[in-house]
Amino acid sequence: MSKTGSIITNVGYLDALARQDSPIHQLDPRAKLLTTLAFIVMVVSFDKYQISAMFPFAIFPIVLIVLGNLPAGYLMKRVLWVTPFAVLVGIFNPFLDRQVLLHIGSVEISGGWVSFASILMRSLLTVLAAFVLVATTGFNTICLALEKIGVPNIFVMQLLFLYRYAFVLAEESGRMVRAWQLRAPLQKAIGIQSFSILLGSLFLRTTSRAQRIYQAMCCRGFEGRLHPAKQLHWTMANTIFLTGFCLLFTVFRFTNPALLLGKLITEIFS
């Protein structure tokens, strides 16, 4: 189960990154969550042929990667490795929209290619922003922020439990699949019938585990609510971070500094 293994390793690594201590890590998770959301909304709000105006937005993930002491190479690899649905759908654009939009020398570039490039750009920026958020904040802290923002306690508990036991169950299912593989060396992947049975028994083991967990919780006084042991402190730095970046995004969104700069440069050189 190399796939399971690598997925779990990657999740674990993002978590390890989140346990560092940096100015970005110290920020309130709510500030990071809201800023990231604003970032994504701004980026996807561009028109489909827009590319240049998105470039300045790269400053946000770059600053966070550097100040947050994140490995840029690793993150870029992850971003590229995730081949999203977006690319699959976007690749049709060059075939459907063949109206020539731009000439560079004698090369004609159709609107479809421009909008496809725009989709790639959006994909890159939004995916990177999500990874950076997780790698500077950590899943559990994001959950804490969600709870403080007003997401129902049940849903937050659900997220925490899912995350905690995903590791345990991935190992368990990995062991089951390995046991299956050892007794079916000639088959490449599990057939549907054995898969259903495997899942069924995994489900039964899961429910009895859930029961034991519940008992363990009761033994320590659980009464239907998780009390977060960590407190959040909203400081001035958070306000500055949130408003500063949102302001910057707004300026980038409505003035297109890249175009202005480009004009300036091309005029200087002509």
Binding site: I154, M157, Q158, L160, F161, L162, Y163, R164, Y165, A166, V168, L169, F203, T206, T207, R209, A210, Q211, I213, Y214, M217, G224
Partner: peptide, 9 residues
């Protein structure tokens, strides 16, 4: 509560 969480996992 734990049942849902673990079934999610």
């Amino acid at each position: 509560v734990p049942l849902m969480g673990v079934v999610g996992a």
